[in-house]
Design a protein around this nucleic acid. Sequence first.
DNA 1: TTGTAGGCGTTATCAT
DNA 2: ATGATAACGCCTACAA
Lengths: 348, 348
Amino acid sequence: MYIYIKLGFIHLGADRLPQKVTIYDIAKIANVSPSTVSRVVNNQPNVKKSTRARIIKLLEEYSYIPDETARSLVTQSSRMVGILISDIRTTHHTDGVFYLQRELSKHGYSCLIYNTGSGDEEQLQYIQVLQQKKVDAAVLMGSVYQTENVKRALKKYLTDIPVFICNGVIDLPNVFSIVADERGGVSECVRLLSDKGRKNTAFIVNHYTPSNLLKREGYEEGVARWCSGNEPLVIETGTGIPLIYQATQELMRSHPDTNGMIFSEDMLAVIGIRALKEMGLRVPEDVAVIGINNSSYTEMCTPTLTSLDNMLYDLSMTVAKDVYSVLQGEHISRKVMIYSEIVERQST
Amino acid sequence: MYIYIKLGFIHLGADRLPQKVTIYDIAKIANVSPSTVSRVVNNQPNVKKSTRARIIKLLEEYSYIPDETARSLVTQSSRMVGILISDIRTTHHTDGVFYLQRELSKHGYSCLIYNTGSGDEEQLQYIQVLQQKKVDAAVLMGSVYQTENVKRALKKYLTDIPVFICNGVIDLPNVFSIVADERGGVSECVRLLSDKGRKNTAFIVNHYTPSNLLKREGYEEGVARWCSGNEPLVIETGTGIPLIYQATQELMRSHPDTNGMIFSEDMLAVIGIRALKEMGLRVPEDVAVIGINNSSYTEMCTPTLTSLDNMLYDLSMTVAKDVYSVLQGEHISRKVMIYSEIVERQST
DNA sequence: TTGTAGGCGTTATCAT
DNA sequence: ATGATAACGCCTACAA
């Protein structure tokens, strides 16, 4: 059996081909107007129960799937959220994306993802793309977006949709900032080391993001407070396993009395521990080590790694929920801070 | 200075507000028809050099940005590629997404990403979403999509766009399969162990994906070939660090003569090494260990980890390039296999 | 309860 | 080289 549908014939057998079925086609078959079908599709009132049932059946039978593109055009809403990440390969960001996507998916939103890198030009370009794609909201993952450049771009291209920045602060009327208290957290790490008698500490960072700058501040603050008399020691290594490895060993050679280390990320700490052990140093007996992020790396090294849990899970979940709330028109706070806490393991 | 634009006034000062400027508005100001503006916007021929210049200037001045939604509706192409991942948090998949996104971005394509989980129902649902969103192509990341269920769904919902499956095979006319030769690779791993005098081997896997099944087959094949006389020993651990840890130790207790291990993923191997060391066993002297994926984990443990590089980088790059090729209408092979190779480090 | 008509912003096909 | 006009598929007053 064949029925004529607009541009061709579609077969009504078991596995009918998915020709494009429009609301118009259904209307014609059901002998009603397209608007009635539309009402049914969108669960709107004012359609007789029997007609509704009849149409629903047809919808199913023909596997009608609304064209989001057309729908977006008329409703002026794409039901998409744009996500900007400097590098999607960093695990705590992907975790964030995971929760975001899961949460938004529940409510029928899709995620448009872009790796922007950290260059000003690229970031600006992608913010333009977000406007072009008419996303309903934007999420900037990571403190790298806390720049004047991004702020200008948002001001120019994304003024009429809510923008969320994850672990950073941008002061604009439509921007919501959700940050972790890394500064306070790192200060507490110094305190922990100090409590264990480790007053000769060092802070090792690969490169400075706004977030890492806060950690550094927290470190210096902590040393001033809990190790008074000792100088803070900050090492910047650059990115790459060999660099971190060498920097750690170099640090021990130039400052052999160091007995406590805080790394700006768990991954660095894992490499650092390896570097220490291969110098014949024991962790934590000779040097206590703390990482940051409380990621899966912590359980993967020997000894297992004490780490500052900056609550990235909570942070992502908060962002996810907030995005939806705002899209629903609810009012939420424009700036939220989430407190971090230390998870102690064998390395301290 | 103010100029009337459709729905309101827009200010021509330094930081003008981004009212929605349409092709129509520009046309009116330039005293030409919308079609001419459209031609300019799309770099089409048949427009006088002077008019083109004039319009380009206006476009810039008013920060005109075309509405992708409307454009998609008429061109029937969203310039979006849909990417399905079972869990975006697994690193080798995010690596893939990274390359894909970077490559496609160059050519003006955007990436819609969905975590589908591995349930049949969800996967089907997201494949429907891809149709709804009218993506120009779909990429399924990972062997988990090599199922009858997915095949049926593709057949029903995605017949008219190219679909790519990364590290899996689905036989449909519009589906392109790019797979790594993991079977052969793992067999080579057994050979390496055997060459080092490790004939009592074991293969440890957390759970069975089609890819992991191939690895297992490769393992068994390898044992039959290179360790004839010895029985293959396969351990399924389930997911989670403690489970893997315990399974490794349990394995050594029940089979104390085991002197070579292949883990289905680097991460498992890292945990396995820790478990072995904490039993007082030396790696590689007592037990040689090989991981799979050649990920960053390999450099992060002590000893550093020998690993089968299944060329996921090449695989992703190949997919990325292929997607673009096909979108350009080029013809490419429907099935590609990429050979893997072993990267030897300290653990063997 | 249902249908009609107009519009969302763009591109594409004809004329001119 | 340029312009009028009709789609694209859907939603939504407003009219019936």
